[in-house]
């Protein structure tokens, strides 16, 4: 039982960076912009967040710096893909290349350094509960923050005027423009939000999850987060579901290995990816389900 609780806790921690980045990219994509630069933004933010955390000794400052770095980096993307209507796929990929290189270069001085932050947390009162305490109430505040953010995004998109405008811009930028909305500005904002969330996710990796900086440390999580938005059919709570599903399958395959299950570890390592495909295939069978949600103008440039 205690082991199961620990597994749940580990899953929640592992899913958090994916959730953070995924929820940002969701807003990003709901406005009709596909930013394949997620990996690059996360790397830049991981380096910047670690550097600030290291110098200030303050993890909150580090996380904020990561988010800021993500925003700044996303502006490069916006300037090109939204301002100059360059191809979004190619621009995003070029940004990933750029971010990987820049973070490696800028972060060189921080390799081998560590940040002595508090690493255990307890929700007062609840952490002592049997089972539930270990499973849910001894996690880093960012885990809860990510969930709160998901709720906020779900509410804003579904219930507020701002959400309506973002969705309208993603569905039909031409009509939104005709009504008088500043389509490109709204898109820049949505991309910046995506950058901020990817930045938080990157800084979470370098400050909380594995408090260190080494180049390439995001190791493909930006790509997984991008895939999650599709998996979730652009719905916020399904991002959380996808992120935790992915996290749990990853943890379960490690747990199976630790228990000495005699299946080749490479085949076990495939599980998270295969599970994602299978679940996607199952939930996608109803075509209406996807079509209703996919932003119609996703990936297409717009110029007024």
């Amino acid at each position: 039982m205690e082991q199961l609780a620990a597994l749940i806790a580990a899953t929640l921690s592992a899913g958090t960076p994916l959730l953070l980045a995924g929820i940002g990219l969701l807003v990003n994509e709901r406005s009709g912009v596909l930013n394949l630069g997620a990996e690059g933004m996360m790397l830049i933010a991981a380096a910047a967040g670690f550097a600030v955390g290291f110098h200030t000794g303050n993890p909150v400052a580090g996380l904020a710096a990561g988010a800021l770095a993500g925003v700044l980096f996303s502006l490069i993307f916006s300037a090109l893909a939204i301002g100059l209507a360059t191809n979004q796929y190619a621009t995003g990929l070029a940004l990933t290349l750029f971010g990987a290189g820049l973070s490696a270069f800028a972060g060189l001085a921080y390799v081998g350094k560590s940040v002595p932050f508090k690493s255990t947390f307890e929700v007062p009162g609840l952490s002592a509960l049997p089972f539930l305490g270990t499973a849910f109430f001894k996690l880093h505040p960012m885990v809860y923050l990510a969930l709160a953010l998901t709720g906020l995004v779900a509410w804003v998109l579904a219930r507020t005027r701002a959400g309506l405008v973002i969705r309208a811009v993603g569905e039909s930028p031409e009509s939104a423009h005709a009504i008088g909305y500043p389509v490109r500005l709204i898109r820049v904002g949505a991309v910046a939000f995506g950058g901020a969330c990817c930045g938080l996710a990157g800084a979470y990796l370098s400050l909380v999850y594995t408090p260190l900086w080494v180049e390439g440390m995001v190791a493909g999580r930006g790509w997984i987060a991008l895939a999650l938005t599709t998996f979730a059919t652009w719905r916020p709570w399904r991002i959380a579901l996808g992120a935790y599903l992915f996290g749990s399958v990853t943890m379960i395959q490690f747990a199976l290995q630790a228990e000495g299950v005699e299946i080749a570890s490479q085949l076990l390592s495939m599980l998270p990816y295969i599970a994602t495909i299978v679940v996607l295939a199952l939930i996608s069978r109803n075509p209406a389900f996807i079509r209703l949600n996919m932003p119609a103008s996703l990936g297409k440039p717009f110029h007024p």
């Binding site: 594995t210 260190l212 080494v214 190791a219 999580r221 990853t250 747990a255 290995q257």
Partner: peptide, 10 residues
């Protein structure tokens, strides 16, 4: 690093 940490946790 992330995977290494997850393996260690397991």
């Amino acid at each position: 690093p992330g995977k290494e940490a997850e393996a260690a946790t397991a």
